[in-house]
Structure formats: structure tokens, C-alpha cells
Design a protein around this nucleic acid. Structure first.
Lengths: 193, 193, 193, 193
DNA sequence: TATGAATGAGTCTTCATTCAT
DNA sequence: TATGAATGAAGACTCATTCAT
């Protein structure tokens, strides 16, 4: 496997594949190296240690994630539209990248607390993005003024995360993206009659 | 440590303590045995293997969990009341058992996919409980008829789970139970104005 | 290989054999375990880590060493006699244990500074024994009063050590014990006419 | 670091510094290259392999060592004087080069048996120098005729080496050169009254 | 029932050396 | 001559599980 891709990204992509196919605890460095088409030692020219591969993987992918969603949202006026686009984009990205979905929703969560704390640091960028939408909606009067941003953020993130995880666990049998509008409606209007 | 508690429960309680204090990956069988006051080998007279301890732990604790909530809910008439009581009970139980909160929200999630699938089996009992509330609300006309039960269930569970996890990660600095009514309101009425 | 020897000593003896036959840097824990007739993991029930095997080895063997020499010396009256007996005993012990000689004179000296410092701690017991002979000789008037004990001690130890090391490096071709009297004479009377 | 020094010596001097500062086992080729201001690969244009650097280092430094001592000795008449000058010179050289003292007395001794055998080859030049002094003393009648040259040589070398090693291990707290006459006296007259 | 000594499979990381440029 | 990115072999240690007592 010879590509022109810089080795750094080459190794991260290999890690995604290996973790998705073998599971977190069976993703040995030697497997990742083989998949990347480099020697074991080469990994350590680009990453400090194994944990560094994983946190870099998450940072890289989640960075793209946030950037893409940010772009999509920018063109929308209302908070409701922004919310819908965010949910749709989130669903689309993971729907189109089966392996990434498995890795982020199932496998990477098996990592130890230390790594998970670092992952949470990266996630904060996403939570801030949610916060901006909420605040926009409160400013435009779309959303209630008396809600706590933290709770709303947790409802939004918790709902999206749970819907994706269930979908991945059910082997992605149904159309995730198609349910985005329903989820948006639920978040905005609640389940009440 | 000598108690009259049957060794089975004694070992499960020891596992909760050891996992809470040392973390999932540092919770060796020998540590659990020591904490339980039995020999390593004795563990294997009561459990098939280490995974069996953990799944039993979850089944035992979650069983109590569901039973308690079920009781509380029974006395309430409206779905809205039932939902509030469920959220409150959920928050109360974990607020009053620091170690259990850490174990279920953070540590046990580091387990491998196989164990997590078994844990999900146990969780289904809780999800059914949620479903019953939703269906009750749809029957009484409190909740919309056109919602998909699955999505609503995922929103409710995702929101509760996310609020608890964040609270545990923030070292339980604030009053979780106190925010139950706000969460219930959000779920029923959404964030919209 | 099943013996009644307690495993601790069994492992140390295995380590001497493996190091003597393979050299310090080729003495893997797995080789020592195999030689001792135990599983790799068993080693770690008796020793903290690999370094602990080596320092224990040295402590155990050097302890015997000093004890034996101490006994032999006790029966002698003059410092000159004690010195002769010490040199002879030292030579005899290493002459009769080919593997121990190789391990202590050549192999263990390749260990890192940390281990060597610990080995030096053990050696202090031997140096004290030398000091006691010197002080005895100064008290009886056999040895000069105006000599520095430290220098004399270094001359005695340096000479014994160098003679043994050279003998081991020359594959023990000549009779080491036979030259004990000549060495003693040199130390007491010097090389001067 | 740019010098006009030929790279060969430049690399050897870098090796002394790196070994003295980091210890034998932490003296990687890449560190030596960096210290020398050359690329890793350049090392291999001047040395066959890492061992070759070390043996060259020892040969180079020990060659200077012997040459200097030879010069100093030449001007002295008696064997006793020559011996004193040799000890003094030996002590002076190492006293004035802290790093060289650490490298030769402590660090280089951690090398494997193969390298140590080659080092011993180099040391033979020094041992011959000692032999010449002994023989000179026997010819002039200063030293006893009935002593074995080999034993005397081992006493002299062992004593000098032990005194220097102890001094280095004690972090060179005292004046090594000042004790040269006492050491010479001990070697010639022994410790006897 | 209860014990606890013994087992042994499995992996991340380092670093001397090469070779295309 | 000089570079430095890439190589890949090699080993200490942990811990779930067993089984003789």
C-alpha cells in the first residue's frame, strides 16, 4: 500500500479501519502499522504512543465534523433551521462513514478514563456549537428565555448521541438521516400534545 | 470482613466498591476477592467468570432500580406525573449512591462490546418502562399521537443519561434531583417558545 | 525439574546458571523461569521485577560469602593470618563455583548504574570485614599505625578483585588458590626489596 | 556546532559527553550524532557500528593516556620515582577530566563481554608500561627478585583502579592526586609494620 | 464449600542500522 | 561526503482462571 497521503493521516485512517474491524481491544499497534503499510516503528515517528494515535484520530475526525457542520449551519437563518441542519449533518456524516460511526459510538468509548477525558476536551467544541444555536434561538425569540442552556444542550446532545448509538447497535438497519426532522420537532416542541 | 450476607451479594457489592475506587481496568478479580473477604477461587464458585460478575452486578442493581421506579410510578395518574417521578427517582437513586453512579455511568462503559450488548439486554427492561409511560400518555391524550415511540424513548433515555453522566463527570457538584422538573418540562414541551 | 527447594532459592540458582551460560544481556526472565522449572508468572510471585532477581541473587550469594569468610577468620589470631585466610577463602569459594565466578566478576558488572549502586551497598559488608582485619593488625602492632585505613582497604580489595577477574578472563587456566600466600605477602610487605 | 576538528574526533568527543551525561545505556547513536552536530547516518561513514565508536573512544583516550605517562616517566631514574609519577599522572589526568573519569570508570564497564574483551586488549598497553617499571625495579635491585611480575602488576593496577573508581563513585569529593605518594608507599612497602 | 499458589498467553516500544537522495 | 526517514526484531510483566488440598 503506497499512497502519497502524508503518513500521519495514513496512520489515522488505518487506525479507524483496524478498530472498526477488530474492536478497540484487538487493535494492536502492529495491526495498525500493517494496515497503514508502514513498519511498527514508523508509527512512533508520528505519534508519541498508542494513546496519542487514538486521541489524534478523535481530534482529527471530530475537527472535520465540527467544521463541516459549522459551514452548513452558517447559511441558515433561524435557530430551528440551524438545529435541523446540524442534526442532519451529524447523521449524514456518520451514515456515510460506517467505520467512523462504529469507532466513535462504540469502540472508542471502551478507552480508559484518561483517554476519555481527553476525548471530552475535544467534544467541548461540539457542545459550544450547540450552545451557539441555542443562544441564537433565545435571541430571536424562537426558544424560551427561561430555559437553562446547560439542560437544553444536554437534551440535544443526549438525544442525538442516543439515536446514533442505537442505530449503530442495530447494525444501521434503518435510514438515520430520514428521522432528522422528527428529532428536531421533538426537541423543539417536545412530546406533549 | 465477616458478614451474614450471602456471598453472592457480598461479592457484587465488593465489585462495586473496587470498580468505583480503582476504575474498571484496575478492578482485578483478586482485588474484588480481597474486598469481599474471600479467596480468589471462591469467586468462581458463585460466578462463571469475571464478565459474569459484572453483568450480574448490572442486572442486580438495575433490577432494584426498575423495581423502585415502578413502585413510585404506580401511584401516579397522568403520564406527565409518571415521567416526572421516573426522572426524579432515577436521579435520587444515583445521587444517594455515589459509587453506583460512577460504576454505571463511567466505568462499566469501558467494558468490551460483548459485555455491553449484555448490559443493553438488561437496559431493555428500563426502556420498556419508559415505553409504558409514553403509551399511557398517548392513550390519555397527553402526548401527541403522531410521534414515533422509539424516537421519544431515545430522547428521554438519552437526555436522562447525558444529564447524569455530565453530573458525575463534574464530580456531582450540583443538585441533580432539583433539576428533574425542568428536564420533564423540556421533554414534554420542548425548548420552543 | 521438581525439587523441594523453596522456589525463591530455586529461581536464584536458575538465574546464576542462565546468566553464566548466556551472559547478562541474554538472560531473559523466560529463560530463568524455564531453567527453574516454573512458569514465567511464578517468578513475579517471589520477585518484584527482574532487577529484584539480580539484586537478591547478589545479596544471597554475597551474604553466604561474607558469612563463610567470617567463620574462617574467627579461628585465626594474627591479622596476617586472618588476611591470608580471607584471601584463600575468597579464592576457594570462587574457584569451586565456576558459574558464580563468571556472574559476579563479569556479567553482573554490565548492569545499569542503579543496580550497581544496590550491589555496592551489599559489598559494603565485605569492605567492613576487611576494615576489621586492618584495625586488628594496627591494634596488635602488625600493621603500621600511620596508614590510612581507606587506602589500605582499597589496595586489598582492588588487588583481590583484579586477580580474580584476570583469572576468570583467562578462563581459569591456573590455580588461583595457590597464589593466595604470595598475594598476602605482597600486601603486607609490598614489592620493595 | 561547527568546528574544524575532523569529524572522527568530533564524534568521539561527542560520545564522551553524551555517555558522561546520560549514562552508557542512554547514549543512543542519535544523541551522539546530535551532540556532534552531524546526521545519524554520517556516524557510519566514520565508524563501522556503535561498538566501534566506543572501542575507538577507549583506544584514542587510552593512547593519549599511555603516551602522557610514558613521557613523564622517561625523565625519572629510579623505579620508585617512575611508579610515583605513573600513579600521579594517572590521577591527574582523570582529575582534570571529569567526564572521561565517569566514562572509563563507570559507564564503559557496563558494556557487554565482547566489547570489554576489546577494551582489555587496549589496556594491555598500560599493563606493559607497568611491567616495564617493575622489571626496571627488579634490575636496579629496588624490588624483590622473587616476586611474580603478574601478581605485582595486578596489585598495582587493581589498587589504582579501585582508588579511582571509589573516588568517582564518591563524586570526587576529595583530592585524588594528593594521595598518590601514600599509595606508592603502600605498594612498595606494604601495610606491614 | 473454601483456599491461594501456580499458570502462560499476549503487546507496546526502542534504537542500531540502512539507503535513496 | 552527508542526510534523516524508515525499518523491524525483541522482551518484561499482568491477571483471569484452575485445581490439589
Amino acid at each position: 500500500m503506497k499512497t502519497n497521503k502524508p503518513k500521519y493521516k495514513q496512520i489515522i485512517d488505518a487506525a479507524v479501519i483496524v478498530i472498526a474491524e477488530n474492536g478497540y481491544h484487538q487493535a494492536q499497534v502492529s495491526k495498525i502499522a500493517k494496515q497503514a503499510g508502514v513498519a511498527d516503528g514508523t508509527i512512533y515517528l508520528y505519534f508519541k504512543n498508542k494513546e496519542d494515535i487514538l486521541i489524534s484520530l478523535f481530534r482529527e475526525k471530530m475537527g472535520n465534523f465540527i467544521d463541516k457542520i459549522d459551514e452548513e449551519i452558517a447559511g441558515k437563518q433561524t435557530a430551528a433551521e440551524k438545529l435541523l441542519v446540524m442534526i442532519e449533518s451529524h447523521y449524514k456524516i456518520l451514515s456515510s462513514d460506517h467505520q467512523l460511526a462504529i469507532v466513535t459510538q462504540l469502540e472508542l468509548r471502551q478507552s480508559n478514563k484518561e483517554l476519555r477525558l481527553k476525548i471530552n476536551e475535544v467534544l467541548k467544541g461540539y457542545l459550544k456549537l450547540i450552545d451557539r444555536i441555542i443562544e441564537h434561538g433565545m435571541n430571536t425569540g424562537e426558544f424560551r428565555q427561561d430555559t437553562e442552556v446547560r439542560l437544553v444542550r444536554q437534551m440535544i446532545f443526549g438525544t442525538i448521541d442516543e439515536t446514533v448509538t442505537t442505530w449503530v447497535m442495530n447494525e444501521e438497519k434503518y435510514d438515520l438521516v430520514a428521522q432528522a426532522p422528527a428529532v428536531q420537532q421533538l426537541l423543539i416542541n417536545g412530546m406533549g400534545a
